[in-house]
Design a protein around this nucleic acid. Structure first.
Lengths: 197, 197
DNA sequence: GTCTATACAAAGATAGAC
DNA sequence: GTCTATCTTTGTATAGAC
C-alpha cells in the first residue's frame, strides 16, 4: 500500500509542515498557533491535531524534516568528488544566498535559537544537533582543503568553521531586521577573501 | 518632587523592566506573559498593567532602555582619547564575553531578531536601529584605526564591521543552543587575529 | 480524514475597592 | 500604587458525527 493511496498527491500533512515551517521561520515558534496554520490552509484546527496531536509534535516534525533535508544535501556535496573543496564551501553558501532574497526569511534553526529556552526539549536537542553538524561539516571540508594545499585559512579549520557558521546565521538575522539584503553578500564576500588560494 | 518620593528606592517599574528583559533574553518576547513576570516579582498582573498598559508598551520600554544603555556606553568609549582604536574594539567585545558566561543569555536584540515579524512595529524599529547603530560604531572605529596606521583589515571597514557584528550576534545564539561557551572565545580570537598591527 | 462542537486554561486587559 | 474581581479572546486539545 503506497502513501499516495492514503493521501492526496500533495498530502495535507506536508502542507501543514510547509505552512508551519514558513510561519516559524518568519515569526518564531512561540508566536504561531494552530489557528494561523488552519486559516492559511483553509482547513480546521482539529485536522492539524489529527496529524500532530500537540504543538510540540508539530514543532519537532518541522525541525526534523528541515535538518534531515540539510543532512542529506550536505552528505551529497561532501561525497561529490567532482567538486573542489572551495566549490563545496560555495555550495554551502547557496541556501544562505537564497534566504537573502526572501526579506523575512532566516534559517529555521536561527529563528529557533532566539527563543531557545522556551522550546520543547526535543526541539532544543534537534536545533543543537543542527548547529553542531553544520559546524562539523564545514570543519571537515576546510581541513581537507587545507591539507590538499587547495587553500590556506587565517586560523585553525575548527575555529574558522565556527566563525563562518556564526557569521552566516547572524547575517541572516541582521539582514531581516535591517531590511538590507547586501548584508549577506558583504559577509560572504569577506569570507571568500579569507580562504586564500 | 523627586522620583524617590513616588517610588521605592528600587522602583517596581524598574523591577518589572529587569524581569521582562531577563525573560525576553532567555525565552523571547512572544513566549513571555504578564503572569510570568508577576509571579517572579511576587506581585499581581494588574500592577504591571498600571506601569505598562499593553504588552507592546512593556516590550518597547525594555528595548528602549537596553539600546539607550548601549548608546551611552559606546559614545563614552568613542570619545575616550586615552584608548587606542584596538582597545575600543576590545571594549566592544566585553559585553559579548560577559554574556558568554551566562549559559542561557544572548543579546536582547539578537533574541528579538529571531521572532522579528511577530513583534510590534515599534519594537522592530528599535531593534533595527540597534543593529545599524552598532555596525556604524564599529565601522567608524575601524576606519579611524586604519587611517592612523594602527592596524590593517582584510577588507573595507564597513564590510568588516558588518562581518564582526553578525559573527558576534550569531556566536551568542550558537553558544546558547550548543551549550559550548568556548564558541565565543574562539570567534573573538579569530576576529582579533584579523585586525593586523 | 475532516468536520462541528466543546472544554479548559492562559493571555491580555479593564474596573473599581482599598 | 497595588490589589481583587472580572471580561474577552486566543490557544491547545479532545469527543464524536459524518
Amino acid at each position: 500500500m503506497r502513501k499516495a493511496d492514503e493521501e492526496a498527491v500533495t498530502g495535507t500533512k506536508e502542507k501543514i509542515l510547509d505552512s508551519a515551517q514558513y510561519l516559524i521561520q518568519t515569526r518564531g515558534y512561540s508566536a504561531i498557533s494552530y489557528a494561523h496554520i488552519a486559516e492559511k490552509l483553509g482547513i480546521r484546527k482539529a485536522s492539524i491535531h489529527y496529524y500532530f496531536p500537540s504543538k510540540a509534535d508539530l514543532g519537532v516534525a518541522v525541525v526534523e524534516r528541515y535538518t534531515a533535508m540539510f543532512e542529506a544535501a550536505l552528505a551529497q556535496v561532501l561525497e561529490n568528488e567532482d567538486l573542489t573543496n572551495r566549490q563545496k564551501i560555495e555550495a554551502y553558501f547557496q541556501p544562505y544566498r537564497d534566504y537573502a532574497d526572501e526579506p523575512e526569511m532566516v534559517c529555521l534553526c536561527g529563528a529557533l535559537a532566539g527563543e531557545f529556552s522556551a522550546l520543547p526539549e526535543e526541539m532544543q536537542a534537534r536545533t543543537r544537533q543542527f548547529f553542531l553538524s553544520h559546524q562539523n561539516w564545514l570543519k571537515s571540508v576546510l581541513t581537507v582543503g587545507e591539507e590538499n594545499r587547495e587553500f590556506r585559512l587565517p586560523g585553525p579549520p575548527g575555529k574558522f568553521a565556527r566563525m563562518m557558521f556564526a557569521m552566516l546565521q547572524g547575517a541572516l538575522l541582521v539582514k531581516r531586521s535591517t531590511g538590507d539584503i547586501s548584508q549577506m553578500d558583504d559577509v560572504i564576500e569577506m569570507l571568500r577573501g579569507q580562504i586564500v588560494s
